[in-house]
Nucleic acid binder design. Sequence first.
DNA 1: CAAAAAGTAGACCATATGGTCAGTTTTTTG
DNA 2: CAAAAAACTGACCATATGGTCTACTTTTTG
Lengths: 214, 214
Amino acid sequence: MANKSKMDGSIGAKNKQIILAAAEKAFASFGFKGTSVQQIADEAQLPKTNILYYFKSKQGLYVALLQDIMSLWNSRFDRVTAADDPAESLADYVAEKMTMSRTHPQASKIFAMEVLNGAPYLNKYFNTEHVAWMNGRVAIIQSWIEQGKMAAIDPTYLLFHIWACTQHYADFSAQITSLLGKSMKRADFEEATRQVIKLVLSGCELDIPRKYQE
Amino acid sequence: MANKSKMDGSIGAKNKQIILAAAEKAFASFGFKGTSVQQIADEAQLPKTNILYYFKSKQGLYVALLQDIMSLWNSRFDRVTAADDPAESLADYVAEKMTMSRTHPQASKIFAMEVLNGAPYLNKYFNTEHVAWMNGRVAIIQSWIEQGKMAAIDPTYLLFHIWACTQHYADFSAQITSLLGKSMKRADFEEATRQVIKLVLSGCELDIPRKYQE
DNA sequence: CAAAAAGTAGACCATATGGTCAGTTTTTTG
DNA sequence: CAAAAAACTGACCATATGGTCTACTTTTTG
């Protein structure tokens, strides 16, 4: 109803995707202010005016991109319940987040930059949907603790640390690449995933699910 | 010999400090490109030309600031030895890094932004001094493991995760503030520190030193 | 105390950049 | 197939910004 021919495979929708992809690449490398519309245009191989045709302004493009990125964050962990197994649920969540860091590092970087700068465009989201999500997750972890399924770890901090460790592999890849002497490949991410899972689960006094052992 | 009257309490040195402090605040909030020399001048309450008088260019000021920041990272962990106690050494390191996140969040943010953007100005440092530091620390942790003092955790990943968790509290403070409904005070940082120490040490199968229990 | 060095500051400029406009071409649709 | 809608694009503009130049004032020093 809202969007009739715009969301289809129509030429407009396709171009929007191209532009968003180009913007993601550029913003991740140079930040919002550091990226010019011209750069995005070059990356997208479209004239500059075309960019402004699809997105009212540079800021409009940025906000649209940010929205796109936030929807990527959706995970199976959103739908976990008190009846689920904490070890498997948490391990799966870590693994999913690590996969995101590997496959969408630019999205992670843009998100990080936005938060670093005080989250001017995400504050509203943080104070509404995100808090609600958080409360839901915390309640479930708390109930796992009360059921004696895992050690009494503050669920809020637990989530902070999962985010910190997993996102680190995307956000700080430049540092990691220097220190490892090579950029991380799929196998390295798998090893890193095992390490994070081990860390997180041992912090919760949980056993590592078979599928994540070695 | 190199600097005679410049490094003293002379008017020049004092102004440089004022400018660096102003630049730290501005760059942390808006990034390198997002910060104008005029903004820094306003923050420092000095005319713009004065900034360019002390630092050849905006980039020069940024590099000087980055150098300043890197020197802050020095820690007792730099001088730890194979004879030291891993539990105490690691717990102290985490505690020190958490204190840095609380007292110098802007420095942490600038560092994060630099790395996020591919570390253009830090790459040289990463590939030399930083690798050397890393190799030294990894060797010591490895020897702790060989001495049976701690579980066999990959030291490289261990350090990555310590950095990730501790720096997270500075870099993602905007998100944390929203989710906690208030900005973290000293007491919150102390609690967070205990949580990180618990996580890291349990990952290494180490007992928490008395001074960090409750 | 006079000369030199250091510090201060307004005027100015070249460039880059976000964004508008007006006109054209292509695609869709009744 | 013609009219309308969507897509495209070069020309243009106002503004912001990094940085220079020149001249003036204050501080240091021999």
